[in-house]
Design a protein around this nucleic acid. Structure first.
Length: 155
DNA sequence: GCCAACGTTGGC
DNA sequence: GCCAACGTTGGC
């Protein structure tokens, strides 16, 4: 089992949106970055766990956890001209983009701020804490996962 | 709102 | 295949 980190803007789709979905489950659509797509397509398996990270907000940080409940399949929003995520280069026979389904698992009582993650020993190698990191899906090592879970207080 | 860093596009 | 221009991300 692997671990991941999913970034999302809470104003667009935050952890509360996910928790409110039927079964707390929704598709992680709209990924339009090849590296992030490849992680989903090639490496994510059902049962993998992930942190939910809020970006582009007052206090960016980790707010809870999710679990992968469906492996990669075509992201249909790329084919929908009315979608924000429409990609004219995507075709039904060549989907170009994929998504996975994730299920809400926990919400932390308090956000674990990026500033704290930066200060925490053992997390120096995380892409998230690197300057200029924009990758929306990051792999997380088992050791990093444990360190971060210890920082968390589950609501 | 600013702006640095990044990924993608497209002309050549 | 290079690389400048562009649009986007995301912390601050």
């Amino acid at each position: 089992m692997r671990h991941w980190l999913f970034k999302s803007e809470p104003d667009v789709f935050g952890i509360d949106h996910l928790a409110a979905c039927p079964d707390g489950t929704d598709s992680w659509d709209g990924i339009r970055n090849y590296q992030a797509r490849n992680f989903m397509r090639d490496d994510m398996k059902v049962g993998d766990r992930g942190f939910f990270y809020h970006s582009n907000t007052k206090v960016p940080g980790i707010v809870g956890t999710v679990e992968i409940v469906r492996e990669a399949y075509p992201d249909h929003t790329a084919l929908d001209p009315t979608s924000n995520y429409f990609d004219p280069k995507a075709k039904p026979d060549v989907p170009r983009w994929v998504m996975v389904d994730v299920a809400f698992r926990s919400r932390y009582a308090e956000v674990i701020p990026l500033a704290i993650l930066r200060e925490t020993k053992g997390l120096e190698a995380m892409p998230l804490v690197q300057k200029g990191s924009r990758l929306s899906i990051n792999p997380v090592s088992k050791a990093e996962w444990k360190i971060i879970e210890k920082l968390a207080t589950v609501a």
